[in-house]
Nucleic acid binder design. Structure first.
Length: 153
DNA sequence: GCCAGGATCATCT
DNA sequence: GATGATCCTGGCA
């Protein structure tokens, strides 16, 4: 069991968001999961190398999702390390691709329900004074403040 | 420590 | 044929 705290996320709104895979209601074989019900995992390959994990949050058909960008592990560090290789603790899951590797997430999770599945997210402490900043690694709607960082522990 | 550049391939147009 | 919701390495300070 690997367990940790989500410390960084980004929101992708769907229809109206040019950076979203659901922009203007686009549909193709690879993105069906993003239109699923809230709590559905949407996993896709990025740059041909990495996996990125999103959790669908909007109503069915909207395509709104949250990208999990970074995690602070506090249990199962050894398991994560066996998948990630020899890296500093804080680098085990401090990026979308690394996070998926550390947790063993791949396309097999795409379209699955989060609840009762292999990978789950639980609500925890609230993030007071939450402020959005610019999203990273995209080329459209770069200024939209939809990136959220957890307060420092 | 910081930055720039290249890797790499499924999926879409 | 082009394009990424990224990561890692090597060079330089």
């Amino acid at each position: 069991m690997v367990r940790g705290r989500i410390v960084e996320t980004e929101a992708y709104l769907g229809f109206e968001d040019p950076a979203s895979h659901a922009y203007q209601g686009r549909r193709y074989a690879g993105n069906a999961a993003i239109y699923g019900r809230p709590g559905t995992w949407y996993v896709y390959r990025s740059y041909g190398i990495h996996w990125c994990a999103n959790l669908v949050v909007g109503p069915v058909g909207v395509g709104a999702a949250v990208l999990i960008r970074a995690l602070e592990l506090d249990e199962g560090v050894d398991v994560a390390r066996s998948r990630r290789g020899k890296v500093p603790d804080r680098a085990l899951a401090d990026g979308p691709g690394k996070l998926c590797q550390a947790l063993g997430i791949d396309r097999a999770l795409d379209g699955r329900q989060m609840r009762g599945g292999m990978v789950q997210v639980f609500s925890g402490a609230s993030w007071p004074n939450l402020v959005g900043s610019r999203r990273i690694g995209i080329s459209k709607a770069v200024d939209w403040p939809l990136r959220f960082l957890a307060p420092k522990s």
